[in-house]
Amino acid sequence: MTKAKTAPKAAPKAAAKTAVKAAKAAPAVKSVDASGDELVFTRPEAMVDRATHYCPGCHHGIAHRLVAELLDEMELTDKTIAASSIGCSVFLYNYIKADTVESPHGRAPAVATGIKRARPDKFVFTYQGDGDLASIGMAEIMHAANRGERITVVFVNNTVYGMTGGQMAPTTLIGQRTTTCPGGRCKDREGAPIRMAEIIAQLGGVAFCARGSLDSVKNIRQAKKYMRKAFEAQTTGQGFGFIELLAGCPTNWRMTPVAANKRITDEMIPYFPLGVYKDLEADGTCGSMIAPGAAGGEAGGK
């Protein structure tokens, strides 16, 4: 599994020390049995060993695991403070071993702003659904991104309000039937589905923004690479990190998990294209931004 990249730029000695610690941090991955076979995949340390309350085939479980794997690999767990949101993932803290504040619906980016400003040395992330982030929380996500808060946002887009029973979300696809657009979403009446990754990438404070998908092994592996970059946008102090994950909600799509995954492939990905929408590091423009707080001294003319 991916490793190595986690060591921050530092003196070689320090880096070597980090590597040793990393090996200790994930002993399970290093497990070898009597016959010399190696345990190459197991539950990440940062993930609580318990059954989730999610429906069969729900992708929140995969998204949680990716977050936990990165917390392990980047050795972030003990300095992480999460802002959970309101949606099916409200119990994030039952599954991820990070100190967590439960935020009101849509406000996790504001709560995370407060956390990060209070404790700038901590790793701070939010985990939000599409109803939470792209509807009620639109102002908070836009402004946290625009301010360049050094936080990471994990955005799980399943095109419905899962927790409340499958109502229309701002991301619901045209024609998709939900309990509040039973005839299918109509562009004239309800507008077009919002593409958040594209919007967030436009904002000044964003260092990394990408959209991945959880429908296939290849896409999950790619999504994890994006998520790592979204974490690194924060850990390297570049700016705001954003990762959108296309996810299935078989229950409210009234589909089997297998059919739900196919729907992501066939219908969601064409409308929500995967890829990197902004990468300051790759653009070579990082470092031009002013850290929040550092700029605060200039109160400006009144």
Binding site: V101, S103, A110, V111, G114, I115, R117, A118, A139
Partner: peptide
């Protein structure tokens, strides 16, 4: 300077929780 009083109060929640 928050984007709204809603956001300001939620920032307060985050900072206070720390």
């Amino acid at each position: 300077q928050a984007e709204s009083e809603v956001a300001a109060a939620n920032m307060l929640l985050g900072a206070g929780a720390c």
